[in-house]
Design a protein around this nucleic acid. Structure first.
Lengths: 219, 219
DNA sequence: TGTATCCGATACAGCAATGTATCGTAGGCG
DNA sequence: CGCCTACGATACATTGCTGTATCGGATACA
């Protein structure tokens, strides 16, 4: 608590983070993603994460103060990846291709989907998102962090989607922020439903398409 | 695994469950709800649950074989309560009172809200729902159980809402099942957002009202 | 009131994970 | 090429939880 220098628990006092250290942290984060997804953040032992990463706990405690801190570093990396993916997906869409109503549906779904990257990893990803929400529901400090990330992401999405829809002379039937919340909610719900039902009937796409039809109207 | 008689781990072989036993189980379930909500299912020790219930672990192992079984009993109790609450909420609504568009919004929101009972316990409830989803995402057996409960609840909701909307000469703009999925998704998302943002700005209501306006159209 | 049985308490052995203190070495710098 | 520091490995003490085996008191029934 008396350490205000940025949060490294290790003995590093100087400013720079060595490349070696960076690699170690990366491997620990990768391993943590797998292990947390498989066993749950709380159930996963630090030991298990280290083993999966090919280290011993010595490495861990040299890089992170606690499992919680490791998890937060992980979410930080995730949100960065999401925002980057969003940018890429946005730049991929050519307004010219979005003329039809089908085009709009497809484009919006693509944009939304871009923030939930690889479908193969959808399961792990959903799990991590849920774990994050759970921790946040219990710990106000984590809640603040979670809220901040959500706001960043949603603001970004509001901008992107409004621009996209507007560029072809349409608009949202409701407050854009509400529209985004509805879309994201529908997507997450649909995805989880599909995952839990076992069947990959892509409930998410169904919901998104229905919603887009309802939400997007002539200006 | 060789026990097909219903699942009591204790020494009870006879058919009847004594009142005493029933009370003990009830207190254990109440305590489990609190402790699980506060610390998480995985992080919570059996010991902690017993202490909260005013028992020792002897009582626990006499009633449940494992923490997982306790949790499943808890969800079973919850779903029953939800379905009951839903019936009550439905019978409370008089079609005559739903004539206006505001009336519809209010009625639908009420119905939806009835399956997420006490707002004071909303936090704990959300936590438990998330925990359940997480366990289901990892364990196919639990997933099946989860899916079954969800289907029960949603089918019920589809029936109720379709009847409600139809009774005043309106209809859903999309497949009713899709409508229900969207509504529930919006509700959960909104509620969690509000909980995590700290502010009780009742985002859920905003989303629900917007959705109802979009979903409910003249027949 | 006496008795049999059910059920929760107690005691115990064992384990897995944690955090720290210390050590050895790899890698960057002169 | 050799030193020195950063960094990860190792060893150790501690802790809290688990599950079982056994015991004693409460409860129901005659």
């Amino acid at each position: 608590m008396a350490d205000e220098s940025g949060g490294h628990p290790g003995r590093t006092v100087g400013a720079v983070i060595s490349p070696r250290r960076e690699r170690t942290r990366g491997r620990l984060l990768d391993a943590a993603f797998d292990v947390f997804a498989r066993h749950g953040v709380q159930a996963a032992s630090i030991e298990a994460v280290c083993e999966a990463a090919g280290f011993t706990r010595g490495a861990f405690y040299s890089n992170f103060a606690s499992k919680e801190e490791l998890f937060l570093a992980l979410t930080e990396r995730q949100i960065r990846a999401q925002l980057t993916a969003l940018e890429v997906a946005t730049s991929d869409v050519q307004p010219a291709e979005v003329g039809t109503r089908d085009g709009i549906r497809e484009a919006v779904r693509g944009i939304i989907a871009s923030v939930l990257p690889d479908p193969a990893a959808a399961q792990s990803w959903s799990v991590m998102a849920l774990e994050f929400e759970l921790l946040a529901l219990r710990d106000p400090q984590i809640a603040a962090r979670y809220a901040e990330q959500q706001v960043r992401l949603r603001d970004e999405l509001v901008g992107v989607l409004e621009r996209l829809v507007g560029s072809i002379g349409l608009r949202f039937a409701v407050d854009p922020r509400t529209a985004v919340d509805l879309l994201l909610g529908a997507f997450e719900t649909g995805q989880r439903t599909a995952l839990l039902a076992g069947a990959d009937d892509d409930r998410a796409s169904v919901l998104i398409e229905a919603l887009v039809d309802l939400l997007v109207t002539p200006a």
